[in-house]
């Protein structure tokens, strides 16, 4: 992808999410489902401050599939208002730590305010880009991400960086939007569609292929969309023929020998 277009997409995404952070509204065109199968449990939402529980821009619940253990270091790519970081922080406990990276200043400030409100000492947020992570190699146990990587113009760079910062044997646990069928060129060219999580999405097979090519092993995906069309879904009705929400797990190879 041409560098200019890639920069233009990033700028559009940044502006869009800055507005969402200011208004604390969702990115999806229909009221979003936060609770239920594949999403957050009622208990998880009840334990969070109301504005945190109500402001989630994700399409899954990555900490539920990550099987986090006490003391682990977790990195959230595109941490937004911080909901997944806060859930992760409860799971890794005082000896663990959670780092949220987001490229939108408004989101990082919002997440920091939320952290203060909750009095959490093991969560930190920084401004950064997932294609250029400001972390040392082999420093993180688990990477989570919720409906963000689809927004990145260069997904190969994102997965390469994820692999670099993970410790050997470290896990990648992400929820994201993938395409069931190709979108028209018109839709793909539309910046608004891109920032609404659609135009940047790839077909599932291609998405998983990129993860494997980056060097991850045990790459698995599970459809997180409800079986029945009538059921509550993080994917708005008119888009369900085109996109689905998936949970993806993969592992960085352990050092051999």
């Amino acid at each position: 992808m041409a560098k200019e277009r890639s920069q233009a997409i990033k700028q559009a995404v940044k502006e869009r999410y800055a507005t969402l952070a200011r208004r604390q509204t969702s990115c999806c065109p229909t009221p979003q489902i936060r609770e239920g199968e594949g999403m957050y449990s009622r208990k998880e939402l009840q334990d969070l401050p109301q504005n945190v529980a109500e402001f989630s821009l994700g399409c899954g619940n990555p900490t539920a599939i990550a099987e986090l253990r006490e003391g682990e270091t977790v990195l959230d790519l595109g941490s937004g208002g911080g909901i997944d970081c806060f859930l992760a922080a409860q799971k890794v406990g005082k000896k663990g730590r959670v780092i949220g990276v987001d490229m939108t200043p408004e989101m990082v400030f919002l997440a920091r305010e939320n952290t203060r409100k909750m009095g959490l000492a093991n969560v930190e947020f920084r401004l950064g880009e997932m294609e250029h992570l400001p972390l040392e190699a082999n420093s993180v146990d688990v990477i989570i991400s919720n409906c963000v990587i689809n927004l990145a113009p260069d997904k190969d760079a994102v997965f390469k960086e994820a692999l670099r910062v993970l410790k050997p044997g470290g896990r990648l646990c992400i929820s994201d939007i993938v395409l069931k069928r190709e979108l028209s060129l018109e839709v793909k060219e539309d910046m608004q569609q891109w920032t609404g999580c659609v135009a940047g999405a790839l077909k599932g097979k291609i998405y998983l292929g990129k993860i494997a090519r980056a060097g991850f092993v045990q790459v698995t995906a599970q459809d997180n969309s409800p079986r029945e069309k009538s059921e509550a879904s993080p994917v708005p009705g008119r888009l369900r023929d085109y996109i689905s929400s998936v949970n993806v797990s993969a592992r960085k190879p352990s050092v051999s020998g």
Binding site: R97, I99, R126, G128, L133, P134, L135, S139, V140, R164
Partner: peptide, 29 residues
């Protein structure tokens, strides 16, 4: 930012180590 985080922070471009300069800090960070 907490000082402990310096252990794993790196330059986003070259991934090399970063040198910290503190101008203001409170009891937490």
């Amino acid at each position: 930012m907490k000082k402990e985080l310096m252990e794993i922070l790196a330059c986003p471009v070259c991934k090399g180590p970063l040198e910290l300069t503190v101008e203001e800090e409170d009891e937490r960070e």
